[in-house]
Design a protein around this nucleic acid. Structure first.
Lengths: 121, 121
DNA sequence: ATAGGTACTTACCAAAAGGTGCATACTGGA
DNA sequence: TCCAGTATGCACCTTTTGGTAAGTACCTAT
């Protein structure tokens, strides 16, 4: 019975990036700021609801920054905060691991019916 | 339309460690082999169903090794495979990030009602 | 005037993930 | 004999997550 809710840092980190689209968002914002629609097109198959929701959570968690230009028609830019950048850094090795073993992982996922290959709808 | 289902390695990696208890399992097996009951007590508040299920998936994914001693009463030992070890390595920075920002993350999680602190039931 | 683009919001629904509790086959201790 | 512990399976149910489709307010181009 620890005062802390997390047993290892992994839990804490996954609590932050554990949404279906969050890794992708992090990935696309790592390089540059992007407008909302821009980001959505970059990801490809997200619904507005999901993208907004995940962005809101990342914003609340201090990972991304939302810059509203208060223009009409609306213009909003999203970018990583400094905190978000530290997270992006920590994610690099994992990202590299995934990239390296991607074909292997894909085989595993399709073997158990988990539709990883059905993203390209 | 990519032939690959994953847009970035992050997706692939998270497809493997994306279960509620998988990070913990990885964490506990990283150091040494453990018997089933041992592992369950180490984690603390998992149900048998969940632990078994996650172990099975990790086993199917070639992350953990299951050694059945074929004894009565049953004795089974779980350990990381070589592949699993590479994953554990890639997870270290993320784990470190989580550890470093743990209190911060906990605040965020409780703020949005996500019961991270209710693990210590 | 109508269609399409901007960045969202909301209501409703399906699917997946997770949790509870009981059952197994066998042994050893009280 | 009866209960506990070993590692698991199975049926059922709830919670969480993700998806679809529509609507909002305002603009520009046709």
């Amino acid at each position: 019975m620890t005062t802390s809710g997390f047993n290892c840092g992994l839990d804490a980190a996954l609590a932050v990036i554990g949404g279906k689209w969050k890794p992708l968002i992090l990935f696309h914002l790592a390089h540059e700021s992007r407008r909302y629609g821009d980001l959505r097109r970059a990801i490809g198959n997200v619904s507005d609801k999901m993208l907004i929701q995940q962005l809101r959570e990342l914003e609340a968690d201090g990972i991304v920054d939302r810059l509203d230009f208060k223009e009409i028609p609306p213009k909003v830019e999203y970018s990583l905060t400094a905190f978000g950048q530290t997270l992006a850094e920590a994610l690099k090795p994992l990202c590299a691991w995934g990239t390296e073993h991607m074909t292997e992982v894909e085989k595993l996922m399709s073997r158990r019916g988990t539709s990883a290959a059905e993203n390209a709808a």
